[in-house]
């Protein structure tokens, strides 16, 4: 056997299991879902077909696109809020903490919540925001409110708050990495040229950390877009998101073709956002020497 053939065979041997795995559990399900999105529903069965009725329904029926836009809005709000909170935190860790061991400890403190069950962290906010919750008790105790309010929970704000809290570590990580990669002497060079700290931040630090911001915002946006736990726990009816609708189509509503069509649209939106962010990041990526 030729050496080249042998090499190719051994490479195939190593790669075959993961390839098979991906094929079986990613591409096959996607293909099934894609096929289903063209089926017809005739209660209680689905009839194989090729028609665009399911997609048409998404455009025509207001309840679907309303939820779509709400989900987009919530995802955008979470992305913005998470970046707004995570950026100062990452900046503080990278530039203000002098001691490397303290910096590592604080960074770990930001990351550690990721090891706690997602469900548990979402549930925590329910106990904080609920009418018998920690926040309400405090407001009543301190005399700011006369009685507990139910305005805090079961709305879009509660969803944004909960998801922002949960996804902050995903934003801190890329922003931290981006800031850490900026050579310190660029900041010194800027100050050396007579530019004060604020202008230096706007002119040097911020532009050079944009790849990290983009990556973090993309994480927060896409993870929020597909989330269905937070809306169930803290969202209430007005906080329903697209993943909940998909879930119900595959469950109670028993309309798999429509659920499949919804899923395909979500997939397309998320993939286009990821590729757009990737392209932006690539365009902005610079040789930091």
């Amino acid at each position: 056997m030729k050496l080249a053939t042998r090499r190719r065979l051994s490479a195939l041997g190593v790669l075959a299991p993961p390839l098979l795995w991906t094929l079986l559990f990613m591409f096959v399900p996607y293909a099934i879902m894609f096929t289903y999105s063209f089926y017809r529903k005739e209660f209680p069965i689905f009839i194989p077909d090729f028609q665009f009725g399911n997609y048409l329904q998404l455009i025509q029926d207001s309840q679907y696109y309303t939820v779509f836009f709400r989900t987009l809005k919530i995802a955008a709000a979470v992305a913005v809020a998470a970046v707004a909170l995570a950026y100062p935190l990452a900046y503080f860790l990278v530039f203000k903490i002098r001691s490397p061991s303290l910096r590592a400890a604080l960074y770990m403190a930001v990351i550690v919540p990721l090891w706690v069950s997602y469900l548990l962290r979402a549930y925590t906010w329910k106990t904080i925001l609920g009418s018998e919750g920690v926040l309400n008790s405090f407001l009543v105790w301190s005399g700011i409110l006369e009685g507990p309010t139910d305005l805090l929970l079961y709305n879009q704000f509660a969803v944004v708050l909960t998801l922002t809290y949960i996804f902050i570590p995903f934003v801190v990580m890329p922003v931290y990495t981006a800031l850490e990669k900026i050579p310190r002497n660029l900041i010194e060079a800027s100050q050396d040229l007579g530019v004060g700290p604020l202008r230096t931040f706007l002119g040097v630090t911020l532009p050079l950390s944009i790849p990290g911001i983009l990556a973090g915002a993309t994480f927060a946006f896409c993870l929020t877009f597909g989330d269905f736990v937070a809306p169930v726990l803290v969202g209430g009816p007005s906080g329903t998101m697209i993943a909940n609708v998909i879930q119900s189509q595959f469950g109670i509503a028993l309309n798999w073709p429509l659920g499949a069509a919804l899923s395909i649209v979500v997939l397309i939106i998320v993939l286009s956002i990821i590729s757009a962010s990737d392209r932006l990041e690539r365009a902005g990526r610079l040789n930091l020497g």
């Binding site: 050579p183 002497n185 660029l186 010194e188 060079a189 800027s190 100050q191 050396d192 040229l193 007579g194 530019v195 004060g196 040097v204 532009p207 050079l208 902005g284 610079l286 040789n287 930091l288 020497g289």
Partner: peptide, 20 residues
Amino acid sequence: DPPYRRPVNTVFQDYALFPH
């Protein structure tokens, strides 16, 4: 005085040119 108020300028060892 902070660096940005001193009448000196520096040529850095590895140049420190702004890559963007």
